[in-house]
Structures are given as structure tokens and as C-alpha cells.
């Protein structure tokens, strides 16, 4: 049977976990920036306060005598649970149900570089229900990055009880550095991910409602307009 339409489906479990992870990651990033500011790794990188999570500094000072770092840490140590749990379920689900195998494979350096060049030339096509190589690489990449965040985060939160985990990252300060750099990678993913979703809104529809269909993948640009 040939489909007359291209179709993207996301089962409920995937959608729920996706959105829990998405919200958790936003909380982790916003609160993480406030925590980072308390003792910046790079003197020239400080996040503007309004973009960080942890509440109004003056309110917090009046309330706690603390400039909102405590609130940021509280956010961070709350969202770490929702993120770790949803991530774990997502990954286990992905392997068990075959979602990863079906949708992320095959993936190889050749197809990635081909599609990457095409994307840079603004010639890459997006077909509902089928990920191109750059998408596959990005999704696998962000899952690996979140895994790295959880591991390096654990090494920072519990450097004694999880010792020698920190040695994997070059010590405690190494773990902080990895946590910071991988955060930047995830933010980059997020920016591109959200931008592309806005360009192809049906993908957002699929991730919210579970299903989206579009005209059969043919020529460039006809469906975007």
C-alpha cells in the first residue's frame, strides 16, 4: 500500500517523555546559568541575570538573605530527578520498542556530511515520518549529551560518594568544565531544533497531538509556504 500522504506519528509515551525532558532541560539550563554565575569558570562568560532561573534577586535577598542562588540550586536539584527519570525511560523505551533502531539507523558519516552540506546550502529536505541524516545525528547526539550531563552532574553533586567517577572527566573541576561545554552543545541543539520546528510546524503538531500528515514528499518548499 502506498501512502498518499507523508505521515509523522509519535506515540503518547514518547510525547509525554519528550515534553518532560524538554521542560526539565530548560529548568536545568536556566538554573544552571544562575549557579554558574556564582563562580564562573570563564571570567568573560557570565549569563545576564534575566535569562537565568532563580527568581528576583532583590526579593530573594529580602526573603532569604541569598541572591537567588539557593533557589537556582533547588530548581536544579528538583529538575535533575524529572530529567534523569524521563531520560532513562525514554532511552529504555527507545531501545525496547525499536524506535531508535527504526528511526535513527542507518546512520553514517557519509550520509551525515552529505545532508549537512545540503542543509548549509539550504537544500536539505524534510520528510514527515522520516529523519534525514543530520536529524538522526542531532537526536542521537543530544541523547548522548544529556547522558553526559547526568554523569558529569553526578560527579559534581557527589564527588566523594561516586569517586572515582570524576576521574573520567579529569577530576572535579574537569567535570564542571565538561558539564559546561556539553550544556553549550545542548543549547545549540535546542536553538536549531526549535528554529527548524518553527520552519516545519507539522513536526510540532506531531509531537503535541501524536500525528501529522503532509502532502507526499516531493518538491522543495511547496509545503512550507
Amino acid at each position: 500500500m502506498t501512502l498518499r500522504y507523508d505521515e509523522q506519528r509519535h506515540p503518547l509515551s514518547r510525547r509525554v517523555l519528550h515534553w518532560i525532558m524538554a521542560l526539565s532541560i530548560l529548568i536545568m539550563i536556566g538554573s544552571g546559568w544562575r549557579i554558574y554565575n556564582a563562580s564562573p569558570i570563564f571570567a568573560f562568560i557570565v549569563f545576564p541575570e534575566w535569562i537565568t532561573l532563580g527568581g528576583d534577586v532583590q526579593t530573594s535577598l529580602a526573603r532569604h538573605g541569598d541572591p537567588g542562588v539557593a533557589s537556582a540550586i533547588a530548581w536544579h536539584f528538583a529538575a535533575m530527578w524529572t530529567l534523569a527519570l524521563s531520560y532513562l525511560l525514554f532511552v529504555v523505551w527507545g531501545f525496547v520498542t525499536g524506535h531508535f533502531r527504526r528511526d535513527f539507523l542507518p546512520i553514517g558519516p557519509k550520509s551525515i556530511s552529505r545532508d549537512f552540506v545540503a542543509a548549509l546550502a539550504l537544500r536539505l529536505q524534510h520528510r514527515l515520518g522520516e529523519y534525514n541524516a543530520v536529524q538522526k545525528a542531532a537526536y542521537v547526539g543530544v541523547l548522548v549529551m544529556v547522558g553526559l550531563m547526568i554523569l558529569s552532574g553526578l560527579a559534581i553533586w557527589k564527588p566523594v560518594q561516586t569517586y572515582p567517577l570524576e576521574l573520567l572527566f579529569g577530576g572535579f573541576q574537569g567535570a564542571r568544565l565538561v558539564h559546561f561545554i556539553v550544556m553549550a552543545g545542548i543549547v545549540l541543539f535546542l536553538l536549531v531544533h526549535v528554529a527548524l520546528t518553527l520552519l516545519v510546524p507539522r513536526t510540532l503538531q506531531a509531537m503535541v497531538l501524536g500525528r501529522a500528515a503532509g502532502p507526499r514528499h516531493t518538491a522543495v518548499s511547496e509545503t512550507v509556504r
Binding site: 507523508d6 542543509a119 539550504l122 537544500r123 536539505l124 529536505q125 524534510h126 520528510r127 514527515l128 528554529a195 527548524l196 518553527l198 520552519l199 516545519v200 507539522r202 503532509g214 514528499h217 522543495v220 518548499s221 511547496e222 509545503t223 512550507v224
Partner: peptide, 10 residues
């Protein structure tokens, strides 16, 4: 469906 183009501004 396509990517980017001048919509990249978005």
C-alpha cells in the same frame, strides 16, 4: 518538505 531558505530569519 523543505528546510530553511529566507524563512531562516524565523
Amino acid at each position: 518538505m523543505t528546510l530553511i531558505r529566507r524563512e531562516a530569519l524565523r
